[in-house]
Structures are given as structure tokens and as C-alpha cells.
Design a protein around this nucleic acid. Sequence first.
DNA 1: GCCGTTTTCGGCCCGACTGTTTTCAGTCG
Length: 581
Amino acid sequence: MDNLAIAHVLNEIADLLEIRDENPFRIRAYRNAASAVTDSGERIADLTDPALRQIPGIGKDIAGRIRELVESGQCRYHQELLAEFPPGVLDLLHLQGIGPKTVALLYGSRRIQSVDELEQAARGGALRGLRGLGPKKEQLILKAIDEWRRHAGRHLTPDAWEVATGVVDYLRDTSPHTTFDIVGSLRRGADTCGDIDILACGAAPDLMAHFVRHPHVERVLGQGDTKSSVRLRKGYQTDLRLVVPESRGAALQYFTGSKLHNIELRDRALRRGWKLNEYGLFQASDGTRLAGDTEEALYAALDLAHIPPELREMRGEIDAAKEGTLPRLIELSDLRGDLHMHTTATDGRDDVETMARAAKAAGLSYIAITDHSQALAMANGLDEAQALAHARRIREVAAQIEGVTLLAGIECDIRPDGQLDLADDCLAQLDIVIASVHSAFNQSPEEMTNRVLRAMECRYVDVIGHPTGRLLLRRDPYAIHVERLIAAAAQHGVALEINSLIERRDLSDAHARLARDRGVKLVISSDAHSVRAFGGLRWGVMTARRGWIEAKDVLNTLPLEALRRGLRRSRKGKRGKGVKA
DNA sequence: GCCGTTTTCGGCCCGACTGTTTTCAGTCG
Ligand SMILES: Nc1nc2c(ncn2[C@H]2C[C@H](O)[C@@H](COP(=O)(O)OP(=O)(O)OP(=O)(O)O)O2)c(=O)[nH]1
Ligand SMILES: [Mg+2]
Ligand SMILES: [Mg+2]
Ligand SMILES: [Zn+2]
């Protein structure tokens, strides 16, 4: 059972307890535990009971539930709750404006236990007479059902960024003296986001009216003087918050989140006799204002170093800020090269020279051209002879271009049995080899893990590409045991890739952090298939930052010669010396 | 249900907007 499956059960327990109107703090405890499980790079199912209880938010009871879940596939507590409420009622919670109280009422008084039944009831007037459900609410329910059917779920963060900047541009037009910031999970650089959050600071009396008239608005969810929400087309909910400039720091902090990070900061303020909200930090006794103009001052007032947004996930950042041990996070400008890209030789759109010039223009001083190998027939993958011919071509182009060095590489498929798709003597003649899985995704954890470990035995494999194969919002990672992969990578000196493609971001932030902690070097790559794609490195860097990664953890921050020395093929170790001719 | 430079018991973040509430509960951020 993987972490997400465990977290799912814990979240369902929380939802069911909430419908049953249980103690809100117990409910929160289950949600916190679910969040801790989701965020763990380690496989929770493999942890011993004491190790489990080490995780903040997991105590005696929940550790027991998790163990039961892992050992038997289910847990009685969860089953008992499900016996009380049919699983369909949980869907109702996802409707905008429907919460646990309403669900309890709907099920308790009308036995409504699915979205379809709710729709029928609302249409047929069967909700009339229920306390708190008037005609307006009835209409809202029908709208929410329609929207849920059309667009449920989250968005890739980079896609939402585009929409968000469009909205900000629109708002700026009429409020030139107001500052706008994109906040929430977007500012934290999360893989996916549930909505778009925008903070406005200034005196802008017409702002909200203007906001709800944005041409893409499908429905106004709420409109007040300081806060409004709309649904834009394609399911982009957008929240806008307005505060006076003096509160910008506190409002940025609040609206950037995460929620758990906010609660921790507010609790910290409380323990010191203060109160923290989106307007500032205040003395609890007399309301004296202590901070709030800037985020820096706010964190400082709480005796904390300023915490970069990407770290505000309650993954240890508060302690680190307290102790002054926050990492110096990698930045995009730290990257000197890009070690994964494709050209017209396989499935890329631009040729080697065009890619090289674009890379140079993007400020990179070296790149590796890594087209596909033969197994990827769909992408025109190269066999040994073609790969070597392509390498010669790359070196010819390299000789003609100044200011950027080209490495001749390959993204070599790892076949289902763990054999590499190209022979060793071919791989040996290249400058860099990425090995990746592109087939047979349904293998068991044992098969998949042994497959990749076997590929890593080859001394010419320098990097494992997109190590888990996940496609965000579309495909689960294949069943690879990431911690065994990390251990093997550490042993062989193989680097693990953080693939920057927005639907991959693979390794994930949590796994990248775990890999680094266990002595593995990382590579942040664009996997570019055209010249436009170098900009995507930004998202790989975001993932790295969320994983507490510093420049020194990443090979392609090194100057070229140091990078070459850092690649597995030239590292000295028990697997032998470099193999340069 | 979790947790502890204030605690092993007694706390647990704080505020905006909506609808039908006759004074505020529910939902959401
Ligand atoms: N103090 C406090 N702040 C909250 C709460 N809920 C949300 N916030 C703050 C922190 C969030 O990052 C921010 C935006 O809320 P969202 O619901 O949009 O969450 P966020 O953007 O983090 O994630 P998302 O990708 O939208 O699901 O508002 C809360 O219950 N308490
Ligand atoms: Mg959000
Ligand atoms: Mg939001
Ligand atoms: Zn690939």
C-alpha cells in the first residue's frame, strides 16, 4: 500500500468523522496525519511502529490504524464509519458550498447518498423545508453539481500561472496604484494547484466589481469588499483578497500558506501572548501592532528567519528557521547546463544546432543532446550505429559553435528485463548516458525495481531519467521502490534526475530531498523537445527548492570539467576507473 | 487525536462571505 492510498483512508476517516459531527480536533488530527503521510518521501508501509510515531502528527492511535491498514489492507475503524455512511456521501463534500453539516442533514433526513440523488431531490423540490436550505441554496446546489461534473479537480501549476498572470494584467489595467501578487500554492511552487489565489494591496474601491466582470467568469461564488471568488472557464476558481498596503506582509504570509504553516505560526504567536492574522501581528492584550508591513519583519518578529515560500509546507521549516539552519536554496541562475534534451534526430522539433544556439541564448554554457534509443520506435529511437553517427554530428556542430559546449549523449531505454537498449561499447563512446523506463509500466514493485537496479549496474549509466514515471493528474508513478533506487544510486554514484516537464516534475520534491539526504547527486533537466522548452527548467528548480535542495547537490550547477568528473563514468570507486580512451 | 522552554492535561488559528439565522451557522480561505 503506497503513501497516497494510506493518506486517502485517513482523509476519508476525517471526512466521515466530520459528517458525524465529532470532535473537530480529532478530525484535524486525521487530516494532519494524512498530510504527513502524503509528504513523506519514505514509504510509510515499510516503517516500524516507532519510526512511524516519530513522524509529527502521527501518534499512538493513528500509527495503529496505519499498521492495521498496511498489514490487512483495511482498518476496522474506517470500515465501521463506512458502514454508517455509504461511500457516495463523500462525493457530496466535493461540491462547492456543501459541507459536512449539509451532508449530514441530506443523508439524515432524506437518505441522499449520491450526487445524482441530490440533483433529483433539488430538481424535484424535495429539499424544501430542510432547515437552512432555501430556494437560493437549491439553485446553488444545482450549479455546483454541474460544475463538479464539468471540471472536478486540480490543475498543473504552470498552466494556472498563465491564467493567473492574465487575470493580474486585467486587474492592473484599472488599478494602476495597487500591487498584485500571485500567492497560495502557486507561489509555493506546488506540482498542482486547486485554484488561483491573488493578493491585491492598495485602496481600490472598484477592484472587486471589476474582478467579477472578467470576461472568463462563469459564476461569482462570492463578492465582498475585501475578498471575492469567481469560477473562470475551464474550472479555474480564482480568489482575490484586498488589503491596505500596511498589511501587505501579513497578508502575503497568510495567503501564501500553506494552511498548516499558517496554523503553526499563529500558534507560535499565541504562545507569546500575540495574535497573528492577515492584517498583522498584534499584542493580544491591547491590540498593539507589532509587525505586518513585510513578510521579513513578520517572521523576524516571531524569531524566525525568513522562510522561502517553497518551504512553507510544515516539513521542518519552522524549526530550521528558529535555529538559523534553513538551506540556501538553489536558484535558476545556478544552473550552468542542461543534460537532457531531444532533437529532430528523434522526437524533438528542432535540430542540434538550433537547440545549441537557443541554449546559449538562455545562458547555458553546456548541454547534452540525449535523443531516444531504438526501443522507442514511435519516437524514431536510434540504434547503435545511428546513435554513434548522431554523436559524430553533435561533435561536428559543437566544433562550429562558440560559447556553449555540446555533450553527445543518449536517453537509453531500460528494457523490461533491465537490459539497456544499446550495447555497452556504444554507450562507452558517448559523453553521458541517461537511462529511462518508457515501457512495461505495469510491472510489480519487485520487477520494476530490479529492472532499474540492473540497468544501473552498467558503468556507463550516469543518470536515471524521470525515475518514477509519474504523469501528474494522469498516471500514477510506476511501482518502483524509490528508496531502493536511491540506495543503489548512492552506491554506484549514479545521479537521479529532476525532470522539469510540468506534467512530470520527477523526482518529486520529497523524493529529491530524501535522495540528497542519502548522498545522491541530482541533475535538473529540461527534457526539452524544442527551443522553447528551456524555460521549463524553472519548474524543475521549483521542485528542487521544495525539496530543500541547494546548488551543491545538483551536478549541472558545476562548471563543465567538474561536471564531467562528477558523472558516474569518470568517478573513481569500487566499480572501476573511468573508461576514457 | 496529538503534543509539551507554559503543560502528561488541557489546550488546539483566525477571519470573510452567504443565506434565512430573528442573532448566526455553515462553508470556505
Ligand atoms: N490561517 C488559515 N489560512 C488558511 C486556511 N485555509 C487557507 N488558508 C490560507 C493558506 C492557503 O495557502 C491560502 C489559500 O488557500 P487555498 O485553499 O487556495 O490553498 P492553497 O492555495 O494553499 O492550495 P490549493 O492548491 O489551492 O489547494 O489561504 C485556514 O484554515 N487558516
Ligand atoms: Mg489555492
Ligand atoms: Mg484559494
Ligand atoms: Zn524519457
